[in-house]
Design a protein around this nucleic acid. Structure first.
Length: 210
DNA sequence: GCCAACGTTGGC
DNA sequence: GCCAACGTTGGC
């Protein structure tokens, strides 16, 4: 139930024929890369109440913890590249960072596991849902989601500012975060991480924050 | 609440 | 298929 993907009124589909989705060059390049080496993920959701079309979009990591089995479906994603990562590349047992966005101190809060691979996002067919897509067809769903299960909180919250500083240093030094999607593809709500990026960030939880 | 960045739409 | 207009994301 993440509501990070804000409502989209879609009049026309640019993408009826999977898997050849985005003709956009940067996107297909990123996807090829994803197929070959991305095994970890970062997914954004908003931990603070915000009313959109009369509905509270809040879904922080504490909300996931409170779910049955500490598991929830990641519905409401309405961006093609984000969808493609979920639909094509996320595999059972892979780990993802739960990122808090649109909040006073954005950053990474915890770790979750993919416990169910992609299946159609039911909210696209629900006229009462804020992510309803009137043009989605039951026989040919457009939007997909995965199930994620809470694993643990990070030992300390890793704020965006810290990651950003490291990113800027690594851009010059060629360090592990030099190409991290969090800054190179800032608006993507479902992002891939290389194993190197994942391990580097994970090690930060044992360090003292500056 | 502002607004830069960027994805999408649709006229041509 | 270009690209201006428009809409969303999300940090600040």
């Amino acid at each position: 139930m993440p509501r990070t993907e804000r409502g989209v009124k879609r009049k026309r589909d640019t993408d009826e024929n999977p898997p050849k989705i985005n003709s956009n060059k940067t996107q297909s390049k990123t996807e090829q890369k994803a197929n070959s080496c991305y095994t970890h993920w970062l997914m954004k959701s908003e931990p603070e109440s915000r009313i959109e079309k009369g509905v509270d979009v809040k879904f922080g990591i504490e909300d996931l913890k409170a779910c049955e089995n500490q598991t929830a479906c990641w519905d409401g994603v309405r961006n093609y590249q984000a969808r493609n990562f979920m639909r094509d590349d996320m595999k059972l047992g892979q780990k993802m960072f739960f990122y808090h966005s649109n909040t006073k101190v954005p950053g990474i809060a915890g770790i979750c596991e993919i416990v169910k691979e992609s299946y159609p996002d039911h909210t696209q067919f629900d006229p009462k849902d804020i992510h309803y897509d009137s043009t989605a067809q039951k026989e040919n769903p457009r939007w997909f989601m995965v199930d994620v299960k809470f694993e643990r909180m990070l030992k300390r919250f890793i704020p965006l500012t810290e990651l950003k500083q490291l990113y800027q240093e690594h851009k010059d030094s060629g360090g592990p975060l030099a190409n991290i999607a969090l800054f190179t593809r800032a608006r993507l709500s479902v992002q891939p991480l290389t194993t190197e990026e994942w391990n580097f960030i994970l090690n930060l939880e044992d360090e003292d924050p500056e």
